[in-house]
Design a binder for these strands. Structure first.
Lengths: 238, 238
DNA sequence: TTTTGTTGATTGGTCAGTCAATCAAAAATA
DNA sequence: TATTTTTGATTGACTGACCAATCAACAAAA
């Protein structure tokens, strides 16, 4: 029972938070959504805070597994960059309730050290995924800059969705981020290993032979637990 | 007394929200910060929600006035673009408490229709400020895209600050956004009016003779009240 | 009979909002 | 000028609602 109930409660929490658009939901709301009594939620999680922590953990886990799947198919660094982008705007992540939930956790991170750690992990991972592949195409300092820029743009597009005015749409968001990458890959100095077609207008040059930082998606998989004792997730909102 | 108290309470609210990193602050907190009793806050604002609305209104007003000042000095479209960017990352706006407050309002916007309207106005204004000057340098469709991208990048950089991990810094944020503009101005088709130096590597070509959409900062000043009955602000976070 | 799952009822605390009362300064009146 | 009245500013005390957390008890499985 325990694992099922925990999952049901975490899912319910995510749902309720997404609908309500805020972490200011009651244990009763969550429990009702899960079809159990509020007391049971406390029984399994001890406190509301703990349930919320598990909820964001689950959000990050989902994101990471999407990323792993997307990266498995990608071969070249440039393909992997596109995969990272695509995952960030994957339909599941783009659902209004999901966006609202992420936003709520972002706000919460201002107050909860633990929540902030989770989001920092997310941010670092998005950055590092981008950086690893960019380094195969560009000198380190340029790669660093572009990784920051791309991550910021992803987060910005994501958050802009939350306003629901003039929704930009999944495809357009991906295109915008790809444009950024293409334009900056074209502008910046050529690849450190092989300068072949980086400057091509379409920006989609294949540079697959460039040694990929580590094993397959090495920087993405478990790898982890450096400065925090939590699961390593993958890239989306901030 | 009334105007002074109102201002003091709004300022106090901003301060408390920023410190606390959330809208979940009590009227007592705010009133204490302002040095008055909680009852007085209710007396002047009627409800907490109303006080919060006034608070975000004040945030937007501040942003707008900064923008007006910055744009006054800018002459060419390209200069104005830089001014818009600079204002978005102006030190005041980049203070952790201010960022936390913006974030809190973003989250609130998921639940409060009125709050959302304010943020939509902000977003539209940022977009339109960028668009107006981009149109002087690029065909409309390209300008549109780049305005979306730049706005997203600004918001993304801004929100990333809120995590306080690996802070990117004001200068670097500006540079990153400028890089984006420069790179995309270089990539995209030349200006519709005069194709002179748009493609130059430094990206800082002057195209001042291109008719600026309307009067001086016409799209920024009052102009307004199309779909919402609130003051027109200027560009920062989302 | 122990263990696990589950809940209703309760408690303690917090908070927005109300209200009647106090105080002071300005306005009106004598 | 002196006195009364009015008006606005301000607050302490209170209320009603909500909610996280607890706990004792009940039920079912092992």
């Amino acid at each position: 029972m325990e694992p099922m109930r925990r999952k049901a409660l975490v899912d319910a929490a995510l749902r309720v938070i997404g609908d309500h658009g805020s972490l200011a939901v009651t244990m009763s709301d969550i429990a009702r959504q899960a079809g159990v009594s509020p007391a049971l939620a406390h029984h399994y999680f001890g406190s509301k805070e703990q349930l919320l922590i598990e909820t964001i953990r689950s959000l990050l886990r989902q994101l990471r597994s999407d990323a792993v799947a997307a990266l498995r198919a990608a071969k070249t660094p440039r393909e992997r960059l596109s995969a990272v982008i695509r995952v960030s705007f994957h339909a599941d992540q783009f659902a209004p309730e999901t966006i609202a939930a992420w936003l709520a956790f972002y706000a919460e991170a201002q107050r909860s050290e633990e929540t902030r750690r989770f989001l920092v992990v997310y941010a670092r991972r998005l950055h590092s995924n981008l950086l690893a592949d960019l380094k195969a195409l560009l000198p380190t300092d340029a790669a660093e800059r572009i990784a920051e820029g791309a991550a910021a743009m992803i987060d910005g597009l994501y958050i802009r969705q939350s306003l629901k005015s003039a929704p930009i749409g999944i495809e357009a968001s991906i295109a915008l981020t790809e444009d950024y990458l293409n334009a900056l890959l074209a502008t910046a100095p050529p690849s450190p290993q092989r300068g072949e077609d980086v400057r091509r207008t379409d920006g989609w040059g294949k540079a697959e032979t460039a040694a990929p930082s580590s094993g397959p998606a090495g920087h993405l998989l478990p790898e982890g637990r450096r400065d925090n004792h939590i699961e390593p997730p993958k890239g989306q909102m901030t």
